[in-house]
Simulated assay, not measured.
Amino acid sequence: MKPSHIEHLGIAVKSLDTAIPFWEKLLGTKCYNIEEVPAQKVRTAFLKIGQTKIELLESTAEDGPIAKFIEKKGEGIQHVAFAVEGLENTLAECEAEGIQLIDKAPRGGAEGLSIAFLHPKSTGSVLVELCEDKNGGCKCGK
């Protein structure tokens, strides 16, 4: 696996309405995109600093993965995402190396990215997301 960069850091929050102003002020930048990903029971908000994005994650359901994360661990960093080329091949390489996959195949994520997660049991307790952008970039107006 050869990631090109950290695509984003995912931060679980109880409320985007509360979190967005805090992060905008802290980072000195504006949120450029808010969207809902119904399949993942989450609303996301994105800010960009340098080449890296901060993804704020608010659960849209009590049984969603972000709600469960917050219930168990509180608000905070939920995952780190790496940009890769050839996500399907990267997943096959990871599996061949004995890394447990949450997603055996890519699925759709926020901002039109193809995503897949590696299980924290295989990554030192860190939830790792792999992302591939087949659409030519984020909506952040680089």
Rank of each mutant, 00 (worst) to 15 (best):
C31E: 12
I70E: 08
E58C: 04
E88Y: 05
G108F: 14
V13T: 05
S125Q: 14
S122D: 11
R43K: 14
A110Q: 02
M1A: 12
A19L: 14
L27C: 08
P38E: 11
T18V: 13
P120S: 02
I99R: 05
V128P: 00
C31S: 07
E71Y: 10
E93A: 11
D103N: 03
A116R: 01
K134L: 08
Q51G: 15
N135H: 12
I66R: 01
R43H: 08
G74W: 10
K2R: 15
P3H: 01
A110G: 06
I70N: 05
A39P: 04
I99N: 03
V42L: 09
D63R: 09
E85V: 11
G74D: 10
T29F: 12
D103E: 07
P65W: 04
C94V: 04
C138S: 11
I11R: 05
K142L: 11
G124Q: 13
E95F: 09
G28K: 03
V13L: 05
G28R: 02
C131S: 10
P120Q: 01
K139N: 14
L118Q: 01
L26E: 13
A110E: 00
D103W: 02
E93Y: 11
I20W: 06
K142I: 08
L118N: 02
F82S: 04
D17G: 00
L27D: 05
I49T: 11
R107Q: 12
F82Y: 14
E71H: 11
S125W: 10
K68P: 06
T18E: 15
L101G: 00
H5T: 14
E97N: 09
K25P: 05
V128A: 04
V13F: 04
K48E: 09
D133L: 01
H79N: 02
E36S: 13
E85A: 08
Q51S: 15
G124P: 00
T44Q: 13
I102W: 08
I54C: 14
Q40M: 10
A81C: 15
T44W: 08
T123K: 01
S4P: 09
C94R: 02
A39K: 15
H5M: 15
K73T: 14
P65A: 07
A45M: 09
I54L: 15
L87Y: 01
C131M: 03
H79C: 03
C31K: 06
Q51M: 15
K104W: 07
E36H: 11
M1E: 14
S4Y: 06
V126S: 07
E132T: 02
G137V: 00
G98W: 03
I115F: 04
L56V: 07
P3C: 12
H8F: 02
P106Y: 04
P106A: 06
P3F: 11
G50W: 03
G50C: 01
L9Q: 09
N135D: 10
D133R: 04
S4T: 12
E129L: 05
W23N: 03
I115C: 03
K73A: 12
S59F: 06
G10R: 07
K104V: 06
G76V: 06
E111I: 10
